[in-house]
């Protein structure tokens, strides 16, 4: 039996999280199908068919899938589940919303946020904000799994030539409807796919001061993140949040500014390749995980860093 991967997309663009999820699927087995549920999503299906290692793309193109409402997409997955041993989705806000609903309808205990595949029924996943790594074995007939995207490399976007098959809609459950989105419009890369991230903590003291980080982000092509403390203080929106209860990131370079490094924040970024910490408190826990640290007042260090980047570029 094959493995079904739920594609993450917004009808305009196939999100990279799909590629990492395909890699997780390939660690489990062969015959990987991708489900594209959307509205006017033909181009997404074409893109999914080119992913290396995908043998078939299922497309459900209907208005009720236009906004990835969990009730509708979960019903679609349930109707397709018979042919699959595993159903995977990225552990993003969309995957997290949809897959547990499908799992309960199928009477299956989902495995969330896996970071490694041990065997077809056994997976590793972080618990307690990453303070422990649990190995869990599922006794269910079918495995529904969400995948931590930073733990798996993206599959190649080219190289596949999967067949595309239309599937019928499971209909509109009529429970919820989409009203509007307020999506942050930014030219900067998304946090979860950025190669470089610069994050601020409570030490930033205000939302206005994040402009200093944005300037550096624009020089480096980086995304801007924040600690929960900075979000709680109202400096930046919640979708900036990196950590146990926000986004999990693993960029090549993570620059932590005025951020102490609470365990819940470290849970979201400690798999970054290189970590830089800028903090005036030399005892701050962030220095315990940082490859390079500068002890100093961020209001001196950050402008100096900006000037230095100009100088050395």
């Amino acid at each position: 039996m094959g493995i079904l991967v739920l594609a993450e997309h917004n009808n305009a663009e196939l999100k990279p999280a799909t590629l990492n999820t395909v890699t997780a699927a390939r660690a489990i087995g062969d015959d990987i199908h991708v489900l594209v549920a959307g509205e006017g999503c033909g181009a997404i299906a074409d893109a999914a068919a080119k992913i290396d290692g995908v043998s078939k793309v299922l497309v459900a193109d209907a208005p009720e899938y236009g906004h990835q409402l969990a009730e509708n997409v979960a019903n679609l997955i349930v109707g397709l589940a018979d042919g699959y041993s595993h159903i995977l989705a990225p552990h993003t806000t969309s995957g997290k919303n949809i897959l547990p609903r499908a799992a309960a309808l199928l009477d299956l205990q989902q495995v969330s946020d896996i970071t490694a595949v041990v065997s077809e029924d056994t997976f590793e996943r972080p618990i307690y904000a990453g303070n422990g790594v649990a190995t869990v074995q599922s006794s269910d007939a079918k495995k529904l799994v969400t995948v931590r995207i930073t733990a798996f490399d993206p599959a190649a976007e080219e190289g596949g030539s999967a067949a595309i098959e239309q599937v019928a809609s499971a209909g509109d459950a009529g429970l919820t409807s989409f009203l509007r989105a307020e999506v942050s419009s930014s030219e900067r890369p998304e946090l979860t796919s950025a190669k470089i991230i610069i994050s601020g903590g409570r030490g930033m003291q205000s939302g206005e001061n994040f402009a200093m980080l944005e300037k550096i982000a624009d020089k480096l092509g980086a995304a801007v993140g924040a600690s929960r403390a900075a979000v709680d203080a109202g400096y930046v929106p919640n979708d900036y949040q990196v950590g146990q209860t926000g986004k999990i990131v693993a960029p090549d370079l993570y620059i932590a500014v005025g951020l102490s490094g609470a365990i819940q924040h470290l849970a979201g970024m400690k798999d970054s390749k290189v970590i830089v910490a800028i903090n005036k408190d030399e005892e701050a826990p962030i220095f315990q995980v940082a490859d390079y640290g500068i002890v100093g007042d961020l209001f001196d260090v950050v402008p100096a860093l900006e000037a230095e980047l100009d100088k050395q570029s």
């Binding site: 409402l69 919820t176 989105a181 307020e182 979708d239």
Partner: peptide, 14 residues
């Protein structure tokens, strides 16, 4: 109002 990757989404729920 729901917190989603990249921003907020508003839905109507019965």
């Amino acid at each position: 109002t729901r917190e989603i990757d990249g921003g907020l989404e508003v839905i109507k729920a019965k």
